[in-house]
């Protein structure tokens, strides 16, 4: 078992408000780690630390370190753009670009300024296959992405993130805007995908974490309360707050 992401004493403030408090955790390679917790507990904020998306918020202040592949990503000379290609992200609401299906998947490759056209196209095909979308779209790659259903759009966003060969995929409540069938398909897909990439999955659907995650982290009020193998956390939680949340006493 290899650590993919190592978080050390991470603190984050938005202005005066401390949103993350002394987070320490190790996320294991090629495993699916879920982060659960009530709204506002800081789980999405933590996720956005892994690809430094919080940099976009000017009032965010961060102390502590995060190591990916044993390299500290919170040092000054890091290439943030390369980091974000290595650590892909899928958002709550499907957000394909208003472009064709093909151009959506090509986006990351264009940014990387890859030139070899046939190689790019084979990467597109591979990403779409990995996201279980190829059969749905192979005859209409040039159609607008918005013609796809919500679930297909979200899988397109996954394919788009996969195209640049990331090591890690971050998912920020990826099924909260989807119907149950599309959700089920994405859940199955994630279980399959973790063989290729490390997955960190924020969800406030407790049952979803139980279904798909190898490891689960429970956060509350900016703190990491408990973190461990999913079955252990769900069956024998150590902390009272974890138990209370899992049994629906709050949240």
């Amino acid at each position: 078992m290899v650590n993919e992401i190592l978080v050390k004493d991470l603190n984050l403030w938005f202005g005066q408000k401390q949103v993350l408090k002394n987070i320490d955790m190790a996320i294991i390679r090629n495993q699916l780690t879920a982060i659960i917790g009530p709204s506002g507990c800081g789980k999405s904020t933590l996720l956005r630390c892994f690809n430094r998306m919080n940099d976009l918020i000017s009032e965010a202040k961060i102390t502590g370190n995060i190591f990916i592949d044993e390299k500290n990503i919170y040092v000054d000379n890091i290439d943030i753009y390369a980091l974000r290609m290595k650590v892909g992200m899928v958002f709550q609401k499907p957000n394909p670009f208003p472009k064709s299906i093909l151009d959506n998947v090509l986006f990351g490759l264009h940014i990387k300024s890859d030139k070899d056209k046939s190689e790019m196209l084979s990467k597109v095909e591979k990403s779409l296959k990995d996201a279980w979308l190829w059969d749905d779209v192979k005859d209409r790659l040039h159609r607008p992405a918005f013609e796809l259903s919500g679930g297909q759009q979200q899988r397109l966003c996954i394919a788009r993130a996969l195209a640049t060969d990331p090591e890690i995929i971050l998912l920020d409540e990826p099924t909260s805007a989807l119907d149950p069938q599309s959700t089920a398909k994405i859940e199955e897909l994630l279980v399959e995908l973790k063989n290729k990439v490390t997955i960190v999955h924020v969800t406030h659907n407790i049952a979803q974490a139980a279904r798909v995650a190898d490891y689960t982290a429970f956060m509350y009020l900016g703190e990491l309360i408990e973190f461990g193998p999913t079955d252990k956390l769900f069956t024998t939680p150590k902390d009272k707050r974890t138990e209370a949340y899992l049994t629906g006493k709050f949240g």
């Binding site: 690809n51 957000n95 394909p96």
Partner: peptide, 21 residues
């Protein structure tokens, strides 16, 4: 929508790339 900008950044785009592309 801001979600387009976020998506572009998350794919490794610079600010200029996200705006122009």
């Amino acid at each position: 929508p801001n979600s387009f900008r976020e998506a572009a950044y998350a794919l490794g785009a610079t600010k200029r790339q996200s705006i122009m592309k």
